[in-house]
């Protein structure tokens, strides 16, 4: 591949990864607070439809994003109510919502299938976009892409440098201990689940109003599931999760390059391949294998390695908070 091709692959990767970045950061926030929002597949798909419809109706892409965020938060509210207030299985309700809202997006989205609509205007950043390579790669797209950069950094700063971020990590880890320190676990879990859902909604709108520019049936199929996998791959750390999203973007953009290279392989296979590959990645980086490999290492080495690659999920992830 020439350097020009590499640049194109990377630029496409960033563009295609941007919606995913919103989704994985949203899910990371929600899971760090202890709530798995397994509805991602349905939320993203439905909000892609809602965002596009709202933008179409109002003529404003930004109102489209807002509508998508609100609807995403509302779906997350169902998850939160079930998980936090009713203390039911988060997996069950999330899965049902994933299927339900996928179908609902088709059911309600019939009138707006494949019609032209507003998209986010391109906006190369002055000065920055003129930098060699980096300028074209990172700073020559649009506001939504730049917002995703800011979101990644802000989330990281929030998690590790602010008091509220420390509390967020605490309620997903040991909610009882956080409660004893004065944290209102129930309210905070609701809050972060809703924020996570809103970001997933924005992810949906980023598909239909930016990256894919339009809506049709099951347009974002598979992205929600992959977002959930990337959160695990990212070890519940926003930077690593974002890296995972970009890695997926690279796989996708390589798959589209490969279409020219391997004429024999059907396009449809290459379209599915990144999804399969990403999950294979996840499987092979999961801690289980590592533990086994390290079984025979001396205790000290084992501890170091595990600490360095520490990707244990939040201890209270998926568990209801029962004040004892």
């Amino acid at each position: 591949m020439s350097s020009e091709q590499i640049l194109i692959v990377l630029a496409t990767a960033i563009a295609s990864a941007t919606p995913l970045v919103f989704a994985v950061i949203g899910e990371t926030i929600s899971e760090r607070a202890g709530v798995i929002n397994l509805s991602a597949e349905g939320t993203i798909m439905f909000c892609a439809m809602v965002g596009f419809a709202a933008a179409l109706a109002t003529g404003s892409v930004w109102l489209g994003f807002i509508a998508a965020a609100v609807v995403g938060a509302l779906i997350a509210l169902i998850v939160a109510f079930n998980a936090i207030t009713l203390r039911q299985s988060q997996i069950a309700v999330g899965f049902v919502l994933a299927l339900l809202f996928s179908d609902l997006s088709s059911f309600l989205g019939v009138p707006i299938v494949r019609i032209p609509g507003p998209t986010v205007p391109a906006f190369p950043l002055p000065l920055l976009s003129e930098l060699p390579i980096v300028g074209r790669l990172l700073f020559s797209s649009d506001v939504v892409v730049y917002a995703s950069y800011v979101l990644i950094v802000l989330t990281w700063v929030f998690f590790y440098r602010t008091r509220a971020g420390l509390t967020l990590r605490a309620i997903g880890e040991q909610p009882n201990a956080a409660f004893a320190r004065g944290a209102d676990v129930v309210r905070l879990r609701y809050l972060y689940t809703l924020i996570g859902g809103a970001l997933m909604g924005i992810a949906g709108a980023a598909f239909s109003l930016d990256f894919k520019a339009g809506w049709s049936f099951r347009h974002t199929g598979g992205y929600g599931w992959i977002a959930l996998a990337i959160v695990i791959f990212g070890g519940w750390n926003p930077l690593r999760a974002a890296f995972g999203a970009y890695l997926f973007g690279v796989l996708q953009s390589l798959a589209s390059v490969a279409q020219d290279q391997f004429q024999g392989v059907p396009t449809q296979v290459l379209n599915v391949a990144p999804f399969a590959l990403m999950i294979v990645f996840l499987v092979f980086t999961s801690a289980g294998w590592l533990d086994r490999l390290l079984m025979h290492a001396p205790a000290k080495v084992r501890r170091r390695v595990l600490q360095a690659l520490h990707t244990a999920p939040p201890a209270a992830l998926g568990k209801p908070f029962v004040q004892d």
Partner: peptide
Amino acid sequence: LGQAGRRLWL
């Protein structure tokens, strides 16, 4: 964790 005050930063 849980220390008093309203500051944003740790």
